[in-house]
Amino acid sequence: MPKINGNEIRPGFFLEHDGGLWSVVKVDHVKPGKGGAFAQVEMKNLRTGTKLNERFRSADKVERVRLENKDQQFLYETDGKLVFMDTETYEQIELPADILGERRPFLQDGMTVVVEYHEAEALNATLPPKVTCRIVETEPVVKGQTAANSFKPAVLDNGVRIMVPPFVGPGEEIVVNTDTMEYSERA
C-alpha cells in the first residue's frame, strides 16, 4: 500500500494508523508562529466507530488504504443488522444497522448502496447522493410567499425532519441530499 506524507491527507481518505483502519473526517492545516506546520486530522475508526484527533507533520509517513467498492442491493433489516445482496454474485452480507448513522432512515427497500471492502471485510456503506422522499406533514402553501431564503419545517415519510422552501406542500415528493440531509429539489 502506498505511503503518503502527513500534509497530503485529505477528507475521505482511508488510513492505516496505530494498527487500525481509519476514515479521515476532517483536516485542518495549521501553521503556528513557532515550529513547523502540521495537519490536525480528525479520524473515525471503521471497525469500532471511535474518533481520534491526531497531528501529522509533513515529514510523517502514513499508510493510505484503498477500499474496494461494490454495488449492493438492500434487502431487509433483521435483529439490528442490514442485509445486502451483491448484484453480480447474489451473495448476501449482514452489516450493523448503525453503519449508516443518522442517514439510516433514508435507506429504502431495494436501494443500491456502495459497500466498501478491505480484504473481503465489509467496513462501510454509502447511500446514493440523492433520495426521493414524500412530505407527510408541513405548513400549508401560502400564496405570494417568495422562496428567498425562507424555509419551513417538514416531516418526511421516513420520520426525518428537514427544512423545505415555502412553496412545497404536504403529499409532494422531494429530492433530499443524503450527504447534507437537506432539501435539494422537487421530484
Rank of each mutant, 00 (worst) to 15 (best):
M1H: 14
I9N: 00
P11S: 03
F14L: 02
G19S: 07
G20K: 07
L21R: 03
S23L: 12
V24N: 00
V24P: 01
V25E: 10
K26N: 13
V27M: 09
V30Y: 05
K34Y: 05
G36S: 14
Q40W: 07
E42V: 10
N45Q: 09
N45H: 11
L46Q: 01
T48V: 07
G49F: 14
G49M: 09
K51C: 11
E54M: 10
E54P: 00
E54I: 12
R55N: 15
R55T: 11
R57K: 12
A59N: 12
A59I: 14
V62G: 01
E63W: 08
E68L: 11
D71P: 11
D71I: 03
D71F: 02
Q72K: 09
Q72C: 07
Y76V: 08
T78K: 15
D79G: 04
F84E: 00
D86P: 12
D86S: 05
T87M: 11
T87P: 04
E88K: 01
E91L: 08
E91D: 11
I93H: 05
E94S: 14
A97K: 12
I99K: 06
I99A: 03
L100R: 07
L100W: 03
L100G: 04
G101R: 10
E102L: 10
P105L: 00
F106Q: 04
Q108A: 08
Q108Y: 02
Q108W: 00
T112D: 08
V113E: 00
V113T: 12
E116F: 10
E116V: 07
H118W: 13
H118T: 01
H118K: 09
E119A: 13
A120H: 14
A120C: 05
A120T: 10
A122G: 15
A122F: 09
A122C: 08
A122D: 13
L123Y: 04
L123G: 10
N124E: 15
L127K: 01
L127S: 05
L127I: 07
P128F: 10
P140R: 04
P140Y: 05
V141H: 01
K143E: 15
K143N: 13
G144F: 04
T146Q: 09
S150V: 15
K152Q: 03
K152S: 02
V155E: 03
V155M: 14
L156P: 12
R161S: 12
I162H: 06
M163P: 01
P165L: 02
P165D: 00
P165V: 00
F167V: 06
F167R: 11
V168F: 00
V168A: 10
V168M: 08
G169T: 02
G169S: 02
P170G: 14
P170S: 15
G171M: 03
G171D: 11
E172Y: 02
E173I: 05
I174Q: 04
V175W: 00
V175I: 13
V176I: 14
D179V: 08
E182A: 10
S184C: 06
S184Q: 12
A187R: 10
A187N: 14
